[in-house]
Simulated assay, not measured.
Amino acid sequence: MEEKIRIGISACLLGQKVRFDGGHKRDPFLVETLGRYVEYVPVCPEVEVGLPTPREALRLVGEAEAPRLVFSRSGGEITERMQSWAAGRLRELEGENLCGFIFKSRSPSSGMERVKVYDDKGMAHKTGVGIFARAFMAHFPLLPVEEEGRLNDPKLRETFIESLFTLKRWRETADRQRTRGALVDFHTRHKLLILAHGTEIYREMGRLVARADLSVEELYAAYLPLLVKALRLQSTIKKNVNVLQHMLGYFKNQLSADEKREMLEIIEHYHQGLVPLIVPVTLINHFTRKYDQPYLKQQVYLNPHPLELQLRNHG
Rank of each mutant, 00 (worst) to 15 (best):
M1E: 11
K4V: 07
S10R: 05
S10V: 09
G15A: 06
V18W: 04
F20M: 10
K25Y: 00
R26C: 08
L34P: 12
Y37F: 15
V38Y: 11
Y40D: 05
P45Q: 02
P45T: 03
E48Q: 09
V49A: 10
G50W: 08
T53H: 01
T53R: 04
R55P: 01
E56D: 04
A57V: 06
E65R: 07
A66N: 14
G75A: 07
A87H: 10
R89Y: 00
R91V: 13
L98E: 09
F101V: 03
F103S: 00
K104T: 06
P108S: 08
M112Y: 06
M112S: 14
R114M: 12
V115N: 01
Y118M: 13
G122F: 11
F132L: 03
A133E: 07
M137I: 07
V145C: 15
R150K: 12
P154L: 00
E158V: 07
E162P: 00
F165R: 07
T166C: 14
R171I: 12
A174T: 15
R178E: 13
R180H: 14
L195I: 02
G198C: 01
I201R: 09
R203F: 11
G206R: 11
L208K: 04
V209Y: 03
V209S: 05
E217W: 09
A221R: 15
A221L: 10
L224D: 08
L226D: 04
L227S: 03
A230F: 07
L231W: 08
L231V: 09
R232I: 06
K238Q: 14
G249D: 10
G249T: 10
N253H: 13
L255D: 07
L264S: 13
I267T: 06
Y270R: 04
G273V: 07
P276T: 10
I278P: 01
P280G: 01
P294A: 01
Q298F: 05
Y301I: 05
P306G: 05
